[in-house]
């Protein structure tokens, strides 16, 4: 396998770990988990270099979540330059089809083969440079995008792993089981399962409501023999932060604002322990 030399393998050889964030179901928080994963990995060490690639071509959310709406991608002699969420420090590189659209309401109406071509370009033409982690956010399902990713990254298969995100209700868990079958079929390593939107704390009385039920993810992980990485409650502070249009950084102003604000959300602390689990097992 190592002898296979493709533009993708040449580009991704300098990436230590590639983590694909999957879920059969839509709207369970793949993008928000991807964003949190990237931010937490970034914060885990002052020298960590992290990339985040959004291959949800018809519904890209990552630019908005990292406060990068409206940025564009530049060409250089060495390929496309990703958008850096932390400004001049350039340790958090981000790439999404959202950066390529002129107008944010433009729809990308593409069938499979065109999506495949775009993904190949993202993997082979983006100047990621040396990265410790590349987090890949995917659309829901197990179709063109997923198969293309795995196909193009076959030469670097040993660097690949995945995380599965779910919400606790039965409808979502069913799709997750399909997703798990997918990882088995393509021989993709799974770090484990994250249960998102597990309970909501009422801001008035502190009562915990299980808006989308709870515990379903943990039960399933046990049944399927999958490591359970943790459950994230609904965190309105995080929802607001990732939904705000505030720019990630300002010219001249120091600091990476999204990260600073992220660190103060309740989710950041829970996510830290998830990232610790990943760092330990990847070390």
């Amino acid at each position: 396998m190592a002898s296979q030399d493709t533009p993708v393998s040449r580009r991704l050889r300098s990436v230590k770990h590639i983590i694909i964030v999957l879920s059969g179901k839509g709207g369970v928080g793949k993008s928000s988990v991807s964003a949190q994963l990237a931010l937490s990995l970034y914060a885990s060490s002052p020298t960590a270099r992290v990339g985040i690639l959004d291959v949800d071509l018809t519904g890209p959310s990552i630019p908005r979540m990292l406060g990068l709406d409206g940025h564009g991608v530049h060409q250089s002699t060495d390929g496309w330059v990703p958008v850096y969420a932390d400004g001049s420090e350039a340790r958090l590189a981000c790439m999404s089809v959202g950066f390529l659209l002129k107008n944010k309401a433009d729809s990308v109406v593409w069938r499979g083969p065109k999506k495949n071509g775009m993904i190949r370009q993202f993997l082979s033409d983006v100047r990621w440079g040396e990265l410790d982690y590349l987090v890949i956010d995917t659309p829901p399902g197990t179709s063109d995008e997923h198969l293309s990713l795995l196909e193009h990254m076959a030469p670097v298969h040993s660097q690949l792993s995945s995380i599965i995100v779910t919400t606790p209700q039965a409808v979502a868990l069913m799709d997750v089981i399909k997703c798990l079958s997918f990882t088995k079929a393509v021989n993709l390593a799974v770090w484990g399962l994250i249960e998102n939107m597990s309970g909501y704390v009422c801001p008035c009385c502190g009562e915990i409501s299980n808006v989308f039920s709870t515990g379903g993810g943990e039960d399933m992980a046990r049944k399927e023999g999958l490591p359970f990485l943790g459950s994230l409650p609904v965190d309105t502070e995080l929802v607001t932060l990732l939904d705000a249009s505030e720019p990630a950084w300002m010219d001249g102003a120091p600091g990476f604002r999204v990260l600073e604000r992220y660190k103060s959300t309740p989710s950041a602390r829970i996510f830290e322990s998830i990232v610790q689990k990943i760092l330990q097992s990847s070390a």
Binding site: C202, C204, E207, T236, D243, S245
Partner: peptide, 18 residues
């Protein structure tokens, strides 16, 4: 909007920020 079954207070889980 989300209505808490205990205190009937309404809160926004997915805030309409825009």
């Amino acid at each position: 909007g989300f209505v808490c079954p205990k205190c009937n207070g309404e809160s926004q889980i997915f805030k309409p920020t825009t």
